[in-house]
Amino acid sequence: MHRPHESQKKTYVLINFDHLSFSYPKTNKLVLEDFSMEIKKGDHLVLKGASGAGKTTLLRLILGFDKPTEGNIYYQGRELTNSVIHTIRRECAWLPQDLNLGEGPVKEVFGFPFSFKVNSGIKPETDEIFKIFDRLNLLPEIWESNFRDLSTGQRQRVGIALCYLLNKPILLMDEPTSALDVDSRQKAAELLLAKNKTIISTSHDSWWIDRCNKIVEI
């Protein structure tokens, strides 16, 4: 029987948490302890658990904003070194729970991430953005509004539209449906789950959890 080469097995596994522990330096409070898990390409994964269990911390660890106290994280078989962290950041889109893009018209703050060198070739036309806005029940009028004046739900949908249009292979999302009504939630899920992407999310929302194909409780 043909056995896959070791490196082929590793690339199939996108992210591997290997006996990971984490505590915040200031408090020394242990947030994650001896946590191991594999995320494969194409997984629609949701992390669920009580508040403070370490769900968001896990996403921050993948993005290199925090460093594990013990254990390792592997991305496509490579240990999470500084250069691998930069690779992950280039290949993912991140939606925090409380998206704050600061002051300024939506058209400016929305366009800013498309000005980054790594995203320069994918800047969408305004029509295309408005189509996505429409699919998320966002009116085109908000384009001229100050981002600061949007409701939490509108901000979340703007963030979802941004993540979708950035067209990255990996989506990291912290409570992506927490501020959405039933209809918007449905539409957001259709948009995000339709594409062949790897999704790593956290959620307390049973509706979203039901739509993910891999559920991990921490």
């Binding site: 950041r89 991140w94 991430p113 790594v118 995203n119």
Partner: peptide, 9 residues
């Protein structure tokens, strides 16, 4: 961090 996570230098 949001900008960094979207690939900003």
């Amino acid at each position: 961090r949001f900008y960094l996570a979207l690939g900003a230098s």
